[in-house]
């Protein structure tokens, strides 16, 4: 059975999710990785208006991520928690 995956940009505010994959170039990948956004890590959506950047809670810090980039971070069904 194929797993259903969501984009991070579609996650509503207040929800905690586990990241499944980050699709981007080396520079961005390493930057996100050093900030704690990488495969297997849990992040919480703090702010997600229908447009503009999102704000994530990663560990104890807040991180603003542009919407286009957030569309390239994927969460699959098993990573969707309350």
């Amino acid at each position: 059975m194929k797993e259903i995956c969501l984009k991070l940009s579609d996650i509503p505010e207040g929800k905690k999710v586990k990241i499944d994959s980050v699709v981007c170039g080396d520079n961005v990948k390493h930057r996100l990785c050093s900030l704690g956004v990488l495969k297997g890590k849990t992040v919480e959506m703090i702010k997600n208006d229908s447009s503009g950047p999102i704000i994530l809670k990663v560990l104890d810090s807040k991180l603003a991520v542009g919407r286009e980039q957030a569309k390239n971070i994927f969460i699959c069904k098993s990573g969707l928690k309350k």
Binding site: R31, P53, S61, K62, L63, A64, V65, G66, Q69
Partner: peptide, 11 residues
Amino acid sequence: ETSDLILEIPP
């Protein structure tokens, strides 16, 4: 050409 924001929002 587009590029994206990654920025820590400090307390």
